[in-house]
Design a protein around this nucleic acid. Structure first.
Lengths: 336, 336
DNA sequence: GTGAAAGCGCTAACAA
DNA sequence: TTGTTAGCGCTTTCAC
């Protein structure tokens, strides 16, 4: 452990085994041209010194790698899980890797994690739809100029420091959802919003309702972005407007709560009330009836994100615009 | 781009800007003691050369980091998502990071990903319950001796090359589940197994059934480890044994499919048939009724795994045994 | 089969 | 304010 930082290095092992450092490299990496006796001696020395190779030193001499950090609040939320899955696979296409950072609910821990993540990655992909992960970044990173760490926002708020941004374009999709509801005879459609997300979904709903104000004034209620939150909001909707016959929900997780609450209150879906969520989660197939949803193509979202980062990092000759919108696609399952 | 590998280095930027490399470091890292004019010149040069700092070189001189690779087949599966979440948080406690590797269904792509991951991490956490990710590792890694990359198996098969292993201990939990079913008057209990997982769950079920063979011979059916697979198996069970009044299922994802199939066939859960899954997923709360389950404490599993790795990597003075079992805990929700 | 030298790209410490 | 020197820990030549 003769090292500056307390860890033993290849030189310590070499000294202990009475050989040169190259011999240690050969022995430990199972290369040829080492006698069995020498190899055994080296391995023993390494074991005694608790030697562990420094991956950064290895990588530096062998080549360079690209790592992007993915910052999210809770991977147990299926939206983030599907996003992370897609991003990991899209990154693998370029031989990049994804460093996962599930920050959890504790903001102080989150700050500490981000503090150390930022020096380990070449770029950061931030999710913004639930917690604004941007606000948790070390101030020094936010203060950096154009040669600071590239920051990519996935479906979250804008910020001058961002290098790129992928947004979810809701207007066309929500129009399709509302038209579908009208087509199946629903004209008293409420909207359940998230208390923490962006306002564009609710704003679009309100604007749409105003156009048909003669039939139904519209009703929107905000709740926590969870299954339970969705359930509470659904109860509030049905109590405020018992004749409501359709509900559009901010996202699928909340919509699952809506389905549960409607079931508990004895309402049939979709006969009494039709329900449409947003996100296209696989978890929307876990319910009965399955959840009709405005699906986000997470594979497209992820590969767009990776292309943007490739442009920023100079890894491609085929520049990609640094702002993109992903459209929602109405996916009819059983709930509407 | 005067570099050996094609990428420009700090020296290229220094040359282009007509300054020393140290000045480049200062300018690009927003350090003090650089004149605004110089900084601007350096930034311009960096931009023109498409300069990107090498994180490995930076880390090497600043300190060392520990990164563990998490290999899994599909993060969209909520079991893996909850596991990954827990592991990321447990790793963060020690200032380690987790490199995510969602290998997907394509085995050739998976092999290629693993090939490059192994040289980027200090240890690998493998999940074995669905795909045997061990079989996808580069042969060279498997051939390595005791100073090869540490390999930790999470709930998967044993292998001589593994450095550590966390298993799920099913016996006590399954006994508790079967006793609970008996206590609520169920005596014709079938088991739905996975075609790909380990056999211990089914074997334990069969052994338990033999002890009470007078009342019910037992029935187990295997299916694909998916929601759809669970549904098919449930239909098979009800057709083979229409008087079956309880089903224990290999895992929660399949059990969700069982609930759907029973609902579709007009059986009430839990009145007609009680259902118990295994895993304790949050997704088990998405259904109506909510899924009763033998829960795995994923936080404990993850922190055990991290402690084991700390022992192997010599990061702790408090050695942890390299084999551990996590118990299942019966969590009564609504389906039994 | 083994060792010596050179260098991966970067930053901290000290000079100028 | 800027430049020079000296490594960080490892692997790849090329000698012996």
């Amino acid at each position: 452990m003769a090292n500056v930082r307390g860890a033993s290095t290849i030189l310590d092992v070499a000294a202990r085994a009475g050989v040169s450092r190259q011999t240690v490299t050969r022995a430990l990496n199972d290369m040829s041209d080492v006698s069995a006796a020498t190899r055994a001696r080296v391995i023993a020395a390494a074991r005694e010194l608790n030697y562990r190779p420094n991956r950064h030193a290895q990588t530096m001499v062998r080549g360079r790698t690209t790592t992007i950090g993915l910052i999210l609040e809770d991977l147990a939320n299926p939206y983030f899980a599907e996003l992370a899955s897609a991003l990991s696979r899209a990154a693998a296409e370029r031989d990049w890797s994804v460093l996962l950072c599930d920050v959890g609910p504790d903001r102080e821990k989150a700050r500490a994690q981000l503090e150390s993540i930022v020096s380990r990655v070449d770029a950061l992909a931030l999710t913004g739809c639930r917690t604004d992960t941007l606000a948790l970044l070390p101030p020094a990173v936010l203060a950096q100029g154009e040669f600071g760490l590239p920051l990519l926002m996935l479906d979250g708020p804008d910020h001058p420091r961002l290098s790129a941004r992928v947004v979810i374009e809701v207007a066309a999709g929500m129009t399709a959802a509302l038209e579908h509801l009208a087509a199946i005879g629903r004209h008293r459609i409420a909207f359940i919003d998230s208390t923490v997300g962006p306002d564009d979904r609710r704003d679009f709903y309100r604007a749409s309702m105003e156009q048909h104000a003669s039939t139904w004034p519209g009703l929107d209620i905000s709740a926590d972005e969870t299954v339970e939150g969705g359930g509470e909001a659904a109860r509030a909707v049905m109590s405020a407007a018992p004749d409501c016959d359709g509900i559009l929900v901010y996202n699928d997780v909340m919509a699952i709560g809506v389905l549960k609450a409607l079931h508990a209150s004895g309402r049939n879906v979709p006969q009494d009330v039709a329900v449409i969520g947003i996100d296209g989660l696989q978890a929307g197939r876990f319910t009965t009836p399955e959840l009709t949803t405005l699906a986000i193509d997470k594979t497209a979202l992820a590969s767009t994100a990776v292309s943007m980062l490739a442009t920023i990092l100079g890894d491609t000759g085929d520049p990609h615009p640094l702002d993109a919108a992903i459209e929602l696609q109405l996916e009819l399952r059983g709930s509407a």
